[in-house]
Design a protein around this nucleic acid. Sequence first.
DNA 1: AACAAGTTTGTAACGATTACAATCACTCGC
DNA 2: GCGAGTGATTGTAATCGTTACAAACTTGTT
Lengths: 139, 139
Amino acid sequence: MTAIESLAACGVKASPQRVAVLDYLMEHHTHPNVDDIYAALHPDYPTLSRTTVYNTLRLLTESGVVQTLSIDERNAHYDADVTLHAHFICTACRTIIDIPLREAALDAMAELPREMQVESTQLYFRGLCPACKCRAEHA
Amino acid sequence: MTAIESLAACGVKASPQRVAVLDYLMEHHTHPNVDDIYAALHPDYPTLSRTTVYNTLRLLTESGVVQTLSIDERNAHYDADVTLHAHFICTACRTIIDIPLREAALDAMAELPREMQVESTQLYFRGLCPACKCRAEHA
DNA sequence: AACAAGTTTGTAACGATTACAATCACTCGC
DNA sequence: GCGAGTGATTGTAATCGTTACAAACTTGTT
């Protein structure tokens, strides 16, 4: 599914800026923040405004096309993969890594009262990534 | 375990301000933010500074006595219960609710690479709480 | 071409958090 | 007891991510 198709599918008008932002997210699974995206797109879209990036990401999140990660207390990160998976953030290098999840286990794990309407689920791990763990052990 | 004992157990010097903050957290399972805590303690500790509340909560988090929740994009919330449980935040009224977890299921759920050193785990749900869901349905 | 509706832009404001320097409290050797 | 030194607290100022807002721009329609 292309960015344009995703936008159409959820009824969001496909401006060049929106396509560019979503395209970037779909091609880079690095969980970028707003500045990463802005810096990456600015060369190609010289008039692009940071505000537009913020607005677009909010819109895309509300539309369910991307998810906003609050794993990093410093700033929000974004992910165009909205299938069930967890995230690990390295507290040293700040890299965010995808963690696959066994789908069935989620229901088995949480005892959610029936009267609650869950709209999104986020599972975060914090710690040291392999590289930083290794570096720490040799220091 | 009292607040003073907890502080001693993890080697944090027990100043009146620190005891007050931790005491408050241990007695109120409302997942307060900094301003909630400050507002609650200020009458009894007129010289208390917001900065001290921030500093104390950071120290307590680093010591593992409390956990900092990043479930609310607006501000951090704090929880003196560091046993395994998830959190649900109502996107309408902003209330944070504890969700019990079946401990065994966590391992079954996440496929964490062996070389990663996980230091903390947070599971967040977002949606409508029973009261707000009901209100929404009747509107 | 004129208009309306919605989008983008840039700047200004906001608000949570942190930095910093001054003051304060407490302990320890005298 | 007393002053130095260490660490804690305080208040203000700065920082920085994000949002509000108003003006300029696009696009589709008559």
